[in-house]
Each structure stands twice: as structure tokens, then as C-alpha cells.
């Protein structure tokens, strides 16, 4: 695998971001982001960063509708390239509602984005619960167990992880044993 190519692309993304240091959305910054889109249309963070910039900067001589159309195209690319990741879905949702007034569509995208994000959260918390308890960070694990149970009452993975944390806590004397 050619990891040096990836590194070069990420260095260009960073350079484009840094170019906004003086004035956010200056001509040079926009040029760097746009060239990167041309060379690597699947680099989602670049698509999202450029879309936000285009939406919040006024480019001299550029018609407003042209800017809005460009931003919309970038956001749709980001949704596709990321296979509908939560950040891309949400960015498109806000745009469609705030700018195009398509609230129903935005609600559907926000719901889809929220569901995606929840899946990741469930995955992360199940992993953290097990690891906190293995590292004997039991107070931290117990605290997370409460939040995880509230948010995912029907998740078998979370239930298992919470159960295992409580078993360890009971053994460590951190939880009072259930009365009878």
C-alpha cells in the first residue's frame, strides 16, 4: 500500500486548513481546498471543510446561488464518499433545512445521522466498560454503566458489559450485595 500518497493528501488538507489562519475563507485557502477535491474527491473531511467555508465566506464576484450550489454538491459528495457517515448526513441536513427550507428531508437525515452515531456510541461504551473494569478503574466503569443502561436499555451488548462491571465491583466490595 502506498501510505506516502495518503500522507501527502493529509498534508495538503492541513495546509489548506492552516491557510485560513490569517483570514478564514481567503482566496488561497479556498483554492487549496478546491484543488484537493479535484485530486481526491473521496476525502470527506476536505469536502465538509470546504462546504462550511463556502457557506460562510463571501467571494468577490461569485453569485450567491453559485456558492450555495457548490456547497450542496460538496455535501452530497461527502454523504456518498463516507457511505452516509453521521457527520456528513448532519452537515447536509442542516444545509437542506436552513438554506433550502426542506425541513422534512432534514429531519429524516438527522434521524439517520443520530441512529448512526448511537450505533458508534453503543460500540464505544461496550468496549470501554470491559476495559475500565479490566484495568480496575471500577468507579469510572460503574458511572458509565449507569449512563449506558439508561441510553441503551435494550442492547444486549451493553447489558452484558454492565453486568460484568457490576460483578467485578461486587467482588471488589465496591457495590453492596443485593439484600436477599
Amino acid at each position: 500500500m502506498d501510505s506516502s500518497r495518503l500522507e501527502a493528501l493529509l498534508a495538503r488538507l492541513k495546509a489548506a486548513r492552516d491557510a485560513g489562519g490569517g483570514q478564514r475563507g481567503n482566496a488561497e485557502q479556498l483554492r487549496l481546498h478546491r484543488e484537493l477535491v479535484k485530486d481526491c474527491p473521496a476525502l470527506t473531511p476536505n469536502l465538509l471543510a470546504l462546504a462550511r467555508l463556502v457557506l460562510t465566506t463571501e467571494e468577490p464576484g461569485v453569485d450567491a446561488e453559485a456558492s450555495l450550489t457548490e456547497a450542496e454538491g460538496l455535501l452530497e459528495m461527502a454523504v456518498q464518499a463516507s457511505e452516509r457517515s453521521a457527520p456528513a448526513l448532519l452537515e447536509l441536513a442542516y444545509f437542506l433545512d436552513d438554506i433550502r427550507g426542506r425541513e422534512d428531508e432534514a429531519l429524516r437525515l438527522m434521524e439517520e445521522g443520530a441512529a448512526r452515531a448511537l450505533q458508534s456510541l453503543e460500540d464505544a461504551w461496550a468496549g470501554l466498560l470491559l476495559r475500565y473494569s479490566l484495568r480496575e478503574q471500577l468507579p469510572k466503569a460503574l458511572e458509565l454503566a449507569v449512563r449506558a443502561e439508561q441510553l441503551f436499555p435494550a442492547s444486549e451488548r451493553i447489558q452484558d458489559a454492565v453486568q460484568s462491571v457490576r460483578e467485578s465491583a461486587l467482588r471488589a466490595g465496591l457495590l453492596a450485595p443485593p439484600r436477599d
Binding site: 463556502v54 457557506l55 460562510t56 465566506t57 463571501e58 450567491a64 446561488e65 456558492s67 450555495l68 436552513d98 438554506i99 433550502r100 427550507g101
Partner: peptide, 10 residues
């Protein structure tokens, strides 16, 4: 709010 957002069609 940013000027570009103020030029949304509606």
C-alpha cells in the same frame, strides 16, 4: 449572520 447565508433564496 454570515452574508452568504443571508443570500439563501427565501
Amino acid at each position: 449572520i454570515p452574508a452568504t447565508l443571508q443570500r439563501a433564496p427565501d
